[in-house]
Design a protein around this nucleic acid. Structure first.
Lengths: 130, 130
DNA sequence: GCTTGACTTGGAGTACACTCTACCATTTAT
DNA sequence: ATAAATGGTAGAGTGTACTCCAAGTCAAGC
């Protein structure tokens, strides 16, 4: 699969795919004899993983480290487990924060919905009013 | 309340507080006659809101626009509602992505937990293996 | 055989959100 | 009264994650 096809499949630019490989966020991709990238199934799995992690906001650095540890073989399994658990904690924390903000946003939206009907904002008493 | 007290209260640097004010992410803060910031209740509410939004990953730009609209008075209420709904959608989408990634991470962690016990990785058949 | 479009690398540039520095004024503690 | 701490502004610098550009190579269609 060419870089163009991969970029279309995952809605990501070819530049970003090359960047991910260059920094080590995915292992080196298969090449044709003339040096042109030819992504195989394995490469695509890595690309998919990288995109998934990045979309959730996990740092590029973490993926680089994970790929590095995978390359070092089975003796790095405990380290990889630790890395994955750390990243999971970070995501859980991030989700807690998002939920807090969503609660706030929901409250504000409901106040503003009232306001567009009545013509003026009317924060319920004792609320934060912002 | 001085900038130092506010920074300690919210675990944020004084630099960041000045930055938020400078770019308009919070309205201008109360000042003493000599020009030193003296945050009142209202200012603190804005700071709190700004921190909440940023922690969830919402863009600074969105807060700036919200503050700008608030300053323009009640006729911007529909615009503010629209802005808040847009940001809420963004957060819901972000949470969906986090949940997807958490599922993946949970699966991987369980495989790695098995691996540290058995000494080798054993991906369940048909899974993504990355 | 030649044009056209896609691919390569290396390196520079950009966007975002801070973060730090220099330098001067003010406030607080001794 | 003075030293130390805190505050102020303007502007430069940083880290992260891309994103773009130049200059050259490669592959497919006419």
């Amino acid at each position: 699969m060419t870089i163009k096809q991969v970029s279309e499949k995952y809605h990501i630019t070819a530049d970003t795919l090359r960047y991910y490989e260059r920094v080590g966020m995915i292992p080196p991709v298969n090449r044709s004899p003339s040096g042109i990238r030819d992504y195989d199934e394995e490469d695509l799995k890595w690309v998919e993983l990288a995109i998934c992690m990045r979309k959730a906001g996990l740092p590029v650095e973490a993926m680089i480290e994970y790929v590095r540890l995978c390359h070092l073989g089975d003796r790095t399994i405990p380290d990889r487990l630790h890395l994955l658990e750390t990243q999971r904690e970070a995501l859980l924390e991030q989700r807690r924060q998002i939920d807090k903000t969503l609660e706030r946003l929901n409250y504000k939206v409901s106040c503003y919905e009232d306001a567009v009907r009545t013509g003026h904002l009317n924060w319920k008493p004792g609320c934060c009013k912002r």
